[in-house]
Write a protein that binds this DNA or RNA. Structure first.
Lengths: 241, 241
DNA sequence: AGTGGCAAAATCGTCCGACAGTCCGATTAT
DNA sequence: ATAATCGGACTGTCGGACGATTTTGCCACT
């Protein structure tokens, strides 16, 4: 039935070292901003070769736990940038061939809630970021790439204004997935641009005035529109194909 | 005002190489399961030293884009495991000192929706996984660690049953964050265990019978309970302190 | 005392070469 | 055909090396 022995997974040295350092960071024994000892020093402390240390460091660096400030040589402990980690998630999702419907359902779950909290908690600065994103969409509406980027920025700004890092980080990967889908759609569905602009205006107003329920409702409609646009696009494609 | 020239961020060779390979993978030019050329071979192709290749590979390996099947020497292209990527997210969130409230709000946004879809789409196998998790909680309710782990498994099973990878991957990090908070709470709030068991039973029933609305509603109540438990715990702590 | 400048020391990115342990494929023996 | 065997291919780790930059220590100067 069950095996008597489990296969022992031997961890190469570089992985063990990476784990040790990672644990220190997570346990706050090493705090963000702290400089790390030099590679040679670490090699000495761990009793391994510098090459091995380097490989270990690479692991933590890609996780965003280590990094260096521009132009500096020394490695420092860093807090993982949301951007970095969310791009990893969206890449993973892309590789798993998520459908637009999956993406859309997740957006329906997260974005309206984010908008709701944003209305209740946005700071003036966040409000302005939001406004700028909406303005940029209006201004660059003709340039597809810029318009899509503005849409993404708008969503990002809403999530940031929600004052909830978990929501923000859950939402970020969705944006990156939305972009390509939206790019295709926005060009093929004539009314899309106008509807987006209208929705952004209403959502912005609601958030500005602190109307949580309205913000939520309008965001829901906004997201629902994406699906409508997608369906129209698909029908068009089918007809065309 | 704005500088005329942006400081060019020098890409070390290992990063450039990692990017090139990553692009190939994302573009499906290298597909999951494909074996990667040997390090020596890659070094030759890129015209760099093997050490440099190794550092590049380390990047992709930690992102889960490369890996090796157990006991095999050769690296293969892999699809990032949800577990791996979500643990990265939750670590990032932990390092950003998210509050329980933030976590809870995100759960409130995602879990009920996941339950709703699960009721509509769960496969028999998923249903059984769900049942086993609930049973395990009931059985190990006395063992705090095991009970918490069972709760996490239950949520994971619900998300998996939702048939939506995006929701599942958005939800996974929340679990990892929930565990420690729940561990503390479950021991201090007497009625917590009974309420969890009850809620799991009802949610399971709803999902089993395909009652989407009920599944959603019960999950909402379930999550709400967590906050109540947390508040009670906090009050108790305050009184004690 | 504080500042500026400069040369030495430290550190990083990359390279070369090497070796033991292990996995794979082919060859040989049963 | 299957099992045992052997050599080659690779990975993990090591030691050393070198140019390019950054950091540091020190000294002169205001």
């Amino acid at each position: 039935m069950t095996d008597l022995f489990a296969p022992l997974d031997d961890h190469p040295a570089y992985r063990q070292i990476a784990n040790v350092i990672e644990k220190r960071i997570v346990a706050r024994s090493l705090r963000a901003g702290d400089p790390l000892p030099s590679e040679m020093d670490l090699a000495r402390q761990f009793g391994v070769n510098r090459s091995t240390i380097r490989e270990a460091i690479r692991e933590l660096e890609t996780h965003g736990l280590l990094g260096r400030v521009r132009g500096e040589k020394r490695l420092r402990v860093t807090r993982p940038e949301p951007r970095r980690v969310s791009s990893g998630v969206s890449r993973a999702l892309a590789l798993h061939d998520v459908t637009f419907l999956e993406l859309w359902e997740a957006m329906m779950a997260i974005e309206p809630v984010a908008a709701q909290y944003a209305a209740a908690r946005r700071s003036p600065a966040q409000l302005q970021t939001l406004m700028r994103a909406a303005a940029r969409f209006k201004r660059e509406v003709a340039d597809t790439a810029a318009a899509v980027s503005a849409v993404v920025d708008f969503f990002t700004a809403v999530a940031a204004a929600s004052g909830n890092q978990v929501l923000a980080l859950s939402q970020a990967p969705l944006n990156l997935l939305l972009a390509p889908a939206l790019t295709r759609m926005i060009d093929r569905v004539p009314q899309a641009r106008a509807r987006i602009q209208d929705a952004q205006g209403r959502i912005f107003e609601a958030i500005k005035l602190g109307r949580s329920e309205q913000a939520r409702t309008w965001m829901e409609k906004h997201i629902r529109d994406f699906k409508r646009g997608y369906d129209i696009d698909r029908q068009a494609s089918l007809v065309a194909g």
